[in-house]
Design a protein around this nucleic acid. Structure first.
Lengths: 185, 185
DNA sequence: TTGCTTGTTATACAAATGAATAATAGTATC
DNA sequence: GATACTATTATTCATTTGTATAACAAGCAA
């Protein structure tokens, strides 16, 4: 992953990986039969580290649906989730979803996990506020919230210098608030 | 670009490019002194084709600010802008922004163009509705709109099969409507 | 015709790369 | 303490890849 961060996928040769890990190329092969397997493992680790982070942050949240949604957004739009390093890894791996089918599969899985979490959070918020909204519409809201978070995450990673700490997640929270027509969030 | 679409950047070797273009590798070198130059040219072409498409669609729009904003969103969230091919190219190139500085520069330029367009459209809409909103807040709205479009574009490219034609852009329009607190769009 | 620029190919080369094999050291098991 | 398994290295090989050079064809200017 360090290789990819430094020079893109092209720099992620087995030799360079071994060099950074301070072992010999043979050892890499000992653990990973071929390069694709290694790339898949790195991809899985990266995605799980990012997606899971926002989802797991909710475990320690003793608050109502609104507070949970807020925390989810904030975690997703602050460091360490928002970081140029993550973007570099994410972009590199997703550029392989056609070339390496297994990466395509686990990428889709991670995406669905995140979207399901969005949907669940949105549903709980509406339930608490006793707004009766049908499933189809909740799904649409979840898609929009997901897209907004993804887009802001992207902007943040690419130009973190343009946002002072916290202002990105603040923008995210306020935007979702408008998106779902909530009085407070 | 066809190489990248098929097998990621790794597949974009000069020999393969030449093969698909039905020429010899030497000819590629005749026009592009080295591989980076070739990649940069392909990147520029790709970005301009995508970003410019949404912006240029406004030229033929004889409507008010609302209609223009709507058209901008719709163009950005429909084929041919929304297409797996575009995503593959975009992801591949953006994964090189650290490795190839020139790509980083033109990527940032394309991004700024798009965001400026968003900001301009949003400003015009508010001006027409005589809502007095300071520049800082307009910029924030533009960032959110930009993020939403980017995120939906991403979802659309990755899972176009999940959305029937037009439903993605419809979701985009409605979401921006909520985001900017507009009665109609 | 002559000469010059452009388009195009054929061929070559050194470096890098993924993969394989064999050998060596360490460590746990019985 | 002998054995088997794991961790690790050294070395090798066939391909691929970016780049370079030389040669050839074609169109065009003088």
């Amino acid at each position: 992953m360090e290789c990819i961060v430094q020079g893109g996928i092209g720099a992620a040769t087995i030799r360079r990986v071994a060099e950074i890990a301070d072992v010999t190329p043979g050892l890499v092969r000992h653990y990973f039969p071929d390069k694709n397997t290694l790339l898949c493992a790195a991809h899985k680790a990266t995605m799980s580290k990012m997606t899971t982070q926002a989802i797991q942050s909710l475990d320690n949240c003793r608050g109502g649906p609104l507070a949970r949604l807020r925390l989810f957004i904030e975690t997703s739009l602050q460091a360490p989730v928002v970081h140029p390093r993550n973007y570099q890894l994410w972009a590199s791996f997703t550029s392989l979803i056609n070339a390496i089918p297994e990466i395509g599969i686990s990428h889709r899985e991670a995406y669905i996990d995140f979207r399901n979490e969005c949907e669940s959070l949105v549903r709980d918020v509406f339930a608490e506020q006793q707004r009766d909204i049908d499933d189809k519409q909740i799904e649409r809201y979840a898609i929009a919230v997901n897209a907004l978070i993804d887009g802001l995450w992207l902007e943040g990673c690419l130009a973190m210098d343009l946002f002072d700490s916290g202002s990105l997640s603040e923008l995210g929270v306020e935007s979702v608030q408008s998106l779902l027509d909530l009085e407070t969030l």
